[in-house]
Amino acid sequence: MSGERGTRRTRTFALTAAMADGQRPEGITMHSTVRTVADPKSARHIPEEWQRILALCTGSGLAVAEVSARIGMRLTPTVDLLRELVAHGLVEHSAPLTEADASNIEFLRRLRRGLERG
């Protein structure tokens, strides 16, 4: 069925099949940076939602919170989806920032600018 906006959206559980087997990567938080390691153009066989994330996270990557905002998905399902992409070797994530880095005003400004663009 189509939603109010007239578009179909795949349910998150359908995009995260590997989560049921208990082999999910840990350590991804809203402060983690996610970067694409697979070529988005060669990954045409994967779901559109995955392709969109791969395209967003090319280059230096994005914070998980920024990915969530740009794809219009709540944070928890976004983290689960990113864990699935890590498990498939399509993206990698860096450890969350230290407390000192997370309070770095320049980093926070860059994050805000990124969210405003999205």
Rank of each mutant, 00 (worst) to 15 (best):
M73A: 11
L115G: 11
L56H: 02
T98D: 03
L56R: 00
R112Y: 15
D101A: 05
L81G: 03
T36R: 10
A17L: 15
T7M: 14
R8E: 15
L15K: 09
M19K: 15
L54Q: 01
R113F: 07
M30V: 10
T16Y: 04
A100W: 10
R8Y: 14
L82E: 01
P96D: 05
A102C: 08
I71D: 01
L62V: 00
I105G: 07
A87L: 09
A55I: 04
R52T: 08
V64M: 11
A69T: 06
E92I: 03
V67N: 06
G6S: 06
E49L: 10
A17F: 14
G114P: 02
N104Q: 02
G118H: 09
R117P: 03
S42F: 07
A65L: 05
H88S: 04
D101P: 01
A102T: 06
Q23V: 11
V79I: 14
M1D: 14
G6P: 05
G22C: 03
W50D: 08
A95C: 02
V91D: 00
A17H: 14
L111G: 06
L54A: 01
S68A: 11
R52A: 09
R5S: 13
S60I: 08
P96A: 12
M73F: 04
T33E: 09
T29C: 09
R112F: 14
R110M: 14
S68H: 03
D101L: 05
V91G: 08
I46S: 03
L56G: 01
G114S: 06
R83Q: 12
R113M: 07
R44M: 10
A38Y: 07
E116L: 13
V64C: 09
G6L: 07
R9V: 15
E99Q: 13
G27C: 02
D21S: 04
R109S: 10
V79D: 01
H45N: 14
R5L: 12
E84R: 02
R44E: 13
T98I: 02
W50L: 08
D101M: 05
Q51M: 06
S68V: 04
T78L: 00
A65P: 07
G118Y: 12
S68C: 07
E66Q: 07
F13L: 14
I46G: 05
I71Y: 00
R11E: 15
T10Q: 13
A87C: 08
R8I: 13
E116I: 13
G118L: 09
V64G: 08
P96G: 13
E116W: 15
S2R: 13
H93W: 00
T36G: 03
A102S: 12
F13Y: 15
L15W: 09
R35L: 01
R109M: 11
L82Y: 00
S32T: 06
L56D: 01
A65F: 02
E48L: 10
R113I: 04
A102I: 03
P77W: 02
P96I: 00
S60A: 11
A100H: 07
L56W: 05
